[in-house]
Amino acid sequence: MTRPAVDGEVRSTRGRPRDPGLEGRVFDAAIALYAEVGWAGFSFDALAKRSGVGKDALYRRWGASRAGLLRQTLEARWYGLEQIDTGSIREDLLALARMWLRLRTGPYGKVGLHMMIDTLRFPEVADVLAGYREDAVRQARSIVRRAIDRGEIPPSTNPGLVLDIVVGGVTNHVATTPQRLRPAMTAKMDEFAVSLVDVLLSGVKQAGQ
């Protein structure tokens, strides 16, 4: 017969208690693994070794969905544009440019390259990343739309074009800088971000006159 619980007593439950730090350790290991080997090497075996989390725990949390884990990892560790909302178009675009510079030059800089290649090679990656990219584009375009609503830039401003210039400018700057010049580039990243955004906004405002 089951004994009723008394006041203040917490009845124990079967099973191992959930580790509150598990997701963080897995995401840290997963972003590093994906940056290093891409989708072809993004296995639960490799992830278990790298994270120190057992495969059984990985399967309990994510089932067999490597793609689902990849999307959650990117959302948690790659970028989050929803956090960019300073109330100023210049500061928002500077935050975006600085974030993209950090990502492209940081230890996980190859993540973007792997995403582009793996989307073309693996349908399961294309499927799971489609929503992630759509969310990112929508969040990024909202930066420009908020500025239009505030009257900072002309209503005719094309949000997609503005973002293409910022993200594309950073991507090209990093990709075309020779290895021998990368230390100097890294030291002047903020200067580049300021110049890029100021030139862009100057053109946007002149186009609206």
Rank of each mutant, 00 (worst) to 15 (best):
E124T: 09
E124A: 07
E124H: 09
E124G: 05
E124P: 05
E124W: 11
V125D: 03
V125W: 04
V125G: 09
A126N: 05
A126C: 09
A126Y: 06
A126F: 09
D127G: 02
D127I: 04
D127Q: 09
D127V: 08
D127K: 09
V128Q: 02
L129G: 05
L129P: 01
L129Y: 03
L129S: 02
L129F: 03
L129H: 01
L129E: 02
L129W: 04
L129T: 07
A130N: 11
A130S: 15
A130C: 07
A130I: 00
G131S: 07
G131P: 00
G131F: 07
G131R: 10
G131W: 05
R133Y: 10
E134W: 10
E134K: 09
E134S: 12
D135H: 10
D135E: 15
A136D: 13
A136C: 05
A136Q: 13
A136I: 01
V137L: 13
V137N: 05
V137W: 02
V137H: 01
V137K: 01
R138F: 02
R138V: 07
R138E: 14
R138L: 10
Q139W: 10
Q139Y: 04
Q139T: 11
Q139C: 12
Q139N: 14
A140F: 01
A140L: 03
A140K: 02
R141A: 05
R141M: 14
R141V: 00
R141S: 06
R141E: 14
S142Q: 14
S142K: 09
S142P: 00
S142W: 09
S142A: 14
S142D: 15
S142T: 12
I143P: 01
I143Y: 06
I143G: 07
I143Q: 10
V144W: 01
V144S: 08
R145C: 06
R146W: 10
R146D: 12
R146P: 08
R146F: 14
R146M: 11
A147C: 14
A147M: 08
A147W: 03
A147P: 04
A147E: 03
I148A: 04
I148T: 08
D149I: 13
D149R: 14
D149P: 00
D149C: 01
R150N: 06
R150K: 13
R150S: 07
G151P: 02
G151E: 09
G151W: 06
G151I: 10
E152A: 11
E152H: 08
E152Y: 01
I153T: 03
I153H: 06
I153S: 03
I153L: 04
I153P: 00
I153G: 00
P154I: 02
P154F: 09
P154V: 02
S156V: 07
S156Y: 02
S156M: 09
S156G: 03
S156A: 13
S156L: 11
S156K: 12
T157M: 13
T157H: 11
T157R: 11
T157I: 13
N158W: 08
N158D: 15
N158V: 07
N158G: 04
N158E: 12
P159A: 06
P159F: 01
P159M: 05
G160T: 04
G160F: 00
G160N: 07
G160V: 00
G160R: 05
G160W: 03
L161D: 14
L161I: 08
L161W: 15
L161C: 06
L161Y: 10
V162K: 01
V162S: 05
L163D: 01
L163A: 05
D164A: 13
D164E: 12
I165L: 12
I165A: 08
V166I: 15
V166K: 01
V166N: 06
V166G: 06
